[in-house]
Amino acid sequence: MQPTVWQKVDSRARRILPFGLTMIVLLFGLTPTYIPGLAQITPMYALIAVYFWSIYRPDLMGYGPGFAIGILEDLLTGAPLGVCTLTLLLTQWIVFNRQKFFHAKPFGVTWLMFVLVAFGAVFLKWIVIGLVAENGLTPFGDLFAAYLITVTVYPVIAWMFSKAQTRLLDES
């Protein structure tokens, strides 16, 4: 049976869901909280989202979407162009190369892996920004705090994403 136009639109919409949700959390991360001291340690939402979708829906979050999100994050956050892109692509590379390992693992394991991957990502960002920016390395303290927060909010974001996945993606 040929799918109708609406079914096609519906399935397209479902397929861009991972990308769309990633953009939403990215924009959410930019929203000011008006709470002193919190802006410096904003979690790296894009990293969480790309890591999550690369594990669970690699067909919908390949290198292409990962690259696009990285560019948008670079442009939006004012980071030197290419820094976030590089970090996200390497994160995906790790996940795709260890897909068998990640397959059907309990949540705790993926979280633990995220703790390691995110540390690598923060460290890489710190080095690359230090190399690219004219003024050398930024203090690592705030970055480390941002890392800890990122790792802490991972379960919350992952829970929301997995709900979205079971509701909207699995039935398609």
């Binding site: 991360g29 930019l30 929203t31 000011p32 909280t33 802006a39 410096q40 340690i41 904003t42 979690p43 790296m44 939006l76 956050t77 004012g78 980071a79 820094v83 960002k125 920004i129 930024t138 705030d142 970055l143 705090a145 941002a146």
Partner: peptide, 10 residues
């Protein structure tokens, strides 16, 4: 102010 960019990086 509608967006606070960059977290710890900028």
């Amino acid at each position: 102010v509608v967006a606070d960019y960059g977290g710890a990086f900028a």
